[in-house]
């Protein structure tokens, strides 16, 4: 498809964001329903006494790409992990695709089926082949017939450009390949939202690009994405909005161009001056 031999990524649909309100999602053309992909209101989370997330409000529109950045320990990963309930939270509300996240196990499972997640350390299943990694959840969770799940998986492995590795075990692949398998594995569940938790932080420098390219291609296809990353080039290129977090709070939200050109909050300015040398 459009993925191979692409010299420079074509322009992304410009978000037609409303002025002033930082938290409103851009309304994209051709979207009938106004339901957000994710809507987080008044979210608070404590680890014991430690207030790890404080008063988080964020609305992610369908098809929107949001990059979350901030210093380590600022609660970025925890926020992602609250959305698919890998972490519990004490106060507030998260609505994913119209479903409110409750403690009800069935509801949690239903939401997890809609939300794909890619981890920093890949977390592939080492005892299963690449293909089995990709077909496991569709077969077990969705009840897809094995043959169909394999075709489906091969389709996504082709999209991340490693169909020839389908029969290998994860430990036989490079880090970049493993992370692409992890992306394919999440895509096999046909999620409505993809979350990336520092997907390139554990990779050798030479392998970062292949993973980012895969993510750019995914963005081009209109996938709703929530990405925690320090890859500012990627953020500039792909994000509709950038969320900056510190000390468990959202400090600033803006579109990439103004975010980098004229950050408003002092903390944001400091952070950007540290990472953009």
């Amino acid at each position: 498809m459009s993925m191979s031999g692409r010299p420079a990524p074509p322009p992304y649909p410009p978000p037609q964001a409303g002025e002033g309100k930082l938290i409103s999602p851009p309304v994209r053309a051709g979207q009938g329903k106004e339901e957000a992909a994710v809507e987080i209101t008044g979210l608070h989370k404590w680890f014991g006494e430690f207030h790890v997330l404080a008063d988080i409000n964020l609305k992610v529109g369908r098809g929107e790409r949001i990059v979350i950045c901030g210093p380590s320990g600022s609660g970025k990963s925890t926020l992602l992990r609250c959305i698919n309930r890998l972490e519990d939270f004490q106060r507030g509300e998260i609505v994913v695709d119209g479903m409110a996240l409750t403690r009800d196990v069935r509801r949690v499972d239903a939401i997890r089926r809609e939300v794909g997640m890619v981890f920093q350390h890949f977390n592939l299943f080492p005892h299963l082949t690449v293909l089995e990694n990709c077909t496991l959840a569709p077969i077990q969770v969705k009840g897809m017939p094995k043959r169909k799940a394999e075709e489906h998986a091969m389709h996504f492995l082709e999209r991340v450009k490693i169909p020839e590795q389908a029969g290998k075990y994860p430990n036989q692949l490079s880090g970049g390949q493993q992370q692409r398998v992890a992306i394919a594995r999440a895509l096999c569940m046909s999620p409505k939202l993809m979350m990336f938790d520092e997907p390139t932080s554990a990779l050798d420098p030479e392998m970062v690009k292949e993973v980012l390219d895969t993510m750019v291609a995914l963005a081009l296809d209109g996938m709703t994405m929530l990405v925690v990353t320090h890859e500012m080039t990627f953020a500039r290129q792909v994000a509709n909005r950038i969320v900056f977090m510190d000390a468990g709070q959202i400090i600033e939200v803006n579109e990439p161009a103004p975010f980098f050109a004229s950050p408003q909050h002092e903390r944001t300015k400091l952070f950007l001056s540290q990472i953009l040398h």
């Binding site: 698919n84 890998l86 196990v105 499972d109 997890r112 089926r113 939300v115 794909g116 997640m117 981890f119 977390n123 592939l124 299943f125 496991l136 959840a137 077990q140 969770v141 992890a182 594995r185 999440a186 569940m189």
Partner: peptide, 9 residues
């Protein structure tokens, strides 16, 4: 976590 994130019980 990976298994749960995929929706496995």
């Amino acid at each position: 976590e990976a298994a749960h994130a995929l929706g496995l019980s």
